[in-house]
Amino acid sequence: MNEPSPAPLSEQEMIRMEKVHKWYGAFHVLKDINLIVRKGERIVVCGPSGSGKSTAIRCINRLEEYQRGRIVVDGHELGNDVKQIEQIRREVGMVFQHFNLFPHLTVLENCVLAPIWVRKLPRRQAEDIAMQYLERVKIPEQAGKYPGQLSGGQQQRVAIARSLCMNPKIMLFDEPTSALDPEMIKEVLETMVTLAEDGMTMICVTHEMGFAKTVAHRVIFMDGGEIIEENTPEEFFTHPRSDRTQLFLSQILHN
């Protein structure tokens, strides 16, 4: 993996989470989450399973509701208005652990669906854009195939291309490599690194510490629904501030 060029960060805020709390019934899953992500910034969120890290990033495009606090995405505060939520979702791409490609559509159709039906692009133009991104994730030759005919790594790269076709300002990655066989993790991470090199604003929930070291501007460690530590990757891995972070690092780095 290449070291991405250290682009100067702009001061423009893309995401602001303020005192966000969420409950599942009586269970307090997110406790006072505060996070500011600036344009072009790359954040890696890690933590043990059940720590609320996926839930936290899924609040940003309102796949999860939250009961208290506020979230502002690209200057628009998330509310309850369905139209406004859809508007924000157009600008926020998301890649899921289990890819969630549409199995009844070909790779190309997966990629052009939202640009055509949401962005109202003409089909021809949407296909040109889709082929461009499929080339970027290095699978243009699979455009006519169905997701069920591809390997896991290929499917996840299609999912990334599908998100990029909407030309999002922010990309959210929810454990993008956790469901992949080891030999396929690399191809997906490489795709994500090239995306980082282009200056995409990214929040990535992942256990890939190598990726965090090389790509992230900041690493956020969550446990028990709280942000325990927020640090630069160098400091995070060499001098973690909290005991819980140390314990977590010792557990995952041993494996």
Partner: peptide, 27 residues
């Protein structure tokens, strides 16, 4: 139809009727 299909459609900005007509009902 798995929940992930609804979520993927939502994340792309598709509304209820488009999600149903283009993603969920065909499957």
């Amino acid at each position: 139809i798995p929940k992930g299909q609804f979520e993927a459609a939502a994340a792309l900005g598709l509304g209820y009727w488009k999600t149903m007509a283009l993603i969920v009902l065909p499957q």
